[in-house]
Design a protein around this nucleic acid. Structure first.
Lengths: 239, 239
DNA sequence: CGTGGATTTGAGAGAAATCAAATCATGTGG
DNA sequence: CCACATGATTTGATTTCTCTCAAATCCACG
């Protein structure tokens, strides 16, 4: 079924896991309820107790937490094929907000259905569990990035990660990719101020590592950018 | 079986999950291979492909990542009853180091055995999956802490978290707990320098929020400390 | 009782934040 | 189709927090 909405998920899951044709059929048979969202719309919020998970079919989203005084930290950026709130399957109350970055198509699937799938098909359960473990690996890398690297390295690392992940799903051509994220949001990913984001981007542009134009990123020197950000893609477990 | 090595794990898993007596029996029947470690000894290192997981029966450990220039970020601190490298079950290559903080007793169990258990007992699989999701929730909170809070708040938050987690396993009495962590290591948890750790601790002591003496922490004003660190224990999912 | 690691304190430097304002897009209504 | 409003980006000036460097205890341990 060409263009099936769960195709990107199956592609991702079959890359590293041993799913048989029955497993794949079961995933493709999942009754997703599709819904469209505009840009910067909340999907779920901290404290919610959602009864379903959402597959990001098309568009981008991000997870964030905020301090009581309103300081926001973006903890994750999600791209098509991912299930940003898969953890809600086992953690009833959401501990962070989930917001769209661009207009999105989301496929919602109930926890009950997923739990049934996990019981019937342990291979699928393992593959989904693995996805949440990769999320955790990214959190660890971000923690190192935010805790121990200066601004420019931090930014270079983040952009190298975006590039690697988008490339893996065929959304980076010749070092260029589209990601509708503002400098404010980049700052919230990296734990730096908007003003500093701007200066750090200028620095990287000055080093001829990349060009940026709103939501377009052009990596000019791939290997030098990765070096600048000390980026090693191991933690992403791509292919 | 009093003093059984997997007791603390069972206690933790049964708190929030619906495990039946068969599930519990299966966990207690796991053939752990016990091994003692000294303080600051590596358990596994980044890049390793271990074929087993370890239960922290007694003692403390931490996970860390380092940049190429040797800047270290501690990404997790582990206490008895936890399985620090549970993620290795589905991610072959370790993406961070695991080191003991104090002398430890570890119970090793092979991935093959765990996978068998997960297949036979889906409830146990779900409970273990859930543990890894709580780890991820802690990473998110640490990311907010490191990215968006000043030094003193950061430290207050970390100590409040230690207190809450140790209290949940009965290792905090009247606000006091033992945790053999140096100021160097505290700095590596928080992304700040050792010198600054010292000054921030002095500040918190000056505010009569806590007393510290090497590995002893005494929380003097529990609610004011949590307020200082903007600590809300939701993300820990204790009871 | 000496030695090495951990803690503490001081002084100065540096990275990034804040404050402020100009410029640049984007989109809307008249 | 243009004027205006709103939000994002850019730049400058200043302040602040945290780091680095340096050195003096302090403590645990052999």
């Amino acid at each position: 079924m060409a263009g099936h909405h769960a195709t990107s998920l199956v592609t991702k899951l079959t890359t590293e896991n041993s799913l048989d044709s029955e497993d794949i059929r079961a995933i493709l048979a999942l009754p997703f309820r599709h819904k469209r969202f505009g840009a910067r719309e909340p999907i779920v919020k901290e404290g919610d107790t959602s009864g379903e998970c959402c597959l990001l079919v098309e568009g981008f989203a991000f997870g964030s937490k905020s301090t009581p005084i309103g300081e926001r930290q973006i903890v994750s950026v999600h791209i098509p094929g991912e299930i940003p709130d898969l953890q809600s399957l086992h953690l009833k109350v959401l501990d962070h907000d989930l917001t769209t970055l661009s207009p999105c198509t989301l496929g919602f699937i109930s926890h009950a259905t997923l739990r049934q799938l996990n019981k019937a098909r342990p291979n699928v359960a393992a593959a989904l569990w693995r996805e949440t473990l990769i999320d955790a690996a990214i959190f660890r890398e971000w923690l190192l990035n935010v805790g121990r690297r200066p601004g420019a390295e931090r930014m270079a690392h983040l952009i190298a990660e975006f590039h690697a992940r988008l490339n893996a799903i065929g959304r980076a051509k010749g070092g260029s990719f589209e990601l509708p994220i503002t400098q404010i949001e980049l700052g919230d990913c990296l734990g730096i101020s908007t003003v500093h984001v701007n200066r750090v981007l200028r620095e990287l542009r000055g080093e001829k590592l990349l060009r940026t134009d709103r939501s377009s990123f052009h990596v000019l020197d791939h290997s030098r950018l990765e070096q600048r950000g000390q980026f090693d893609p191991l933690y992403l477990r791509l292919h």
